[in-house]
């Protein structure tokens, strides 16, 4: 069985694919920051909130972390028209991924908050630091250090996870790969090239995040 790889047809479409990669990153960024807002609220609710707030936050996290994002988005996309809301596919995907990120980031941030040691706060108080100074110099750096690695892993997961947008016809990286492969019939080559683009994309993302972490939070993160 002979098969000759022909990558030329794929490389011709490289600019088109990279455009898709930009959209992929855009989806991941938007959902990440949207999720971060929800995550902060969720973590505060879970750590410091009243009973009701804690319950709601927990239920939210448990539901979203135990069901697939794909099916959640199917539900959003196909069920909302029943009540008169028509979502654009891209919007449905971003909303779905944001709600997902919110749930995961709630957990990551909560773990960061509860990792702050009482003894450090007491030591800072004994040094006559103000509450604001304690927050700035003791609590926040500590949280930043603990959550840094899970946070950057999660971002990579989000970049990869955003590929499900292709199933709703969004033309991000995977979507454009599907478009190309149905046209040039060089499916394997197309998806191999796309796989390499994803790998490079996430490698660059991890390396950048690790550098930022080292520089800003003195986290001992491995760049590669």
């Amino acid at each position: 069985m002979e098969y000759t790889f022909q990558f030329a047809a794929v490389f011709r479409e490289l600019p088109y694919l990279l455009g898709g990669a930009a959209l992929t990153l855009g989806i991941a960024f938007t959902s990440f920051w949207g999720g971060a807002v929800i995550g902060v609220l969720g973590a505060v609710a879970k750590v410091n909130g009243k009973r009701v707030a804690r319950r709601i936050a927990s239920a939210y996290v448990v539901f979203f972390t135990n069901t697939p994002a794909l099916v959640q988005i199917f539900l959003l996309y196909y069920a909302l028209p029943d009540v008169g809301i028509l979502l654009d596919p891209l919007v449905a995907v971003v909303v779905g991924l944001t709600l997902n990120s919110g749930a995961y980031l709630t957990e990551i941030l909560r773990a960061g908050v509860i990792s702050v040691r009482r003894s450090e706060i007491e030591a800072a108080t004994a040094l006559n630091m103000s509450r604001f100074q304690i927050l700035l110099y003791v609590i926040l750096p500590h949280i930043a250090k603990t959550i840094y690695a899970p946070l950057s892993n999660f971002f990579v997961w989000l970049v990869l996870g955003s590929s499900l947008a292709a199933l709703f016809g969004v033309e991000e990286l995977t979507g454009r790969a599907i478009n190309i492969s149905t046209e040039n019939l060089r499916s394997i080559e197309t998806f191999l090239v796309v796989a390499v683009i994803y790998a490079l994309l996430t490698l660059i993302a991890s390396a950048t995040l690790a550098l930022v972490g080292r520089w800003a939070f003195r986290v001992d993160a491995k760049v590669l």
């Binding site: 990579v156 990869l160 996870g161 590929s163 499900l164 292709a166 199933l167 995977t174 790969a177 599907i178 492969s181 499916s187 394997i188 998806f191 191999l192 796309v194 796989a195 994803y198 790998a199 996430t202 490698l203």
Partner: peptide, 11 residues
């Protein structure tokens, strides 16, 4: 670990 499961499926 750095490519989407969807892309693995296609490959």
């Amino acid at each position: 670990r750095r490519i989407p499961f969807l892309v693995i499926l296609f490959i």
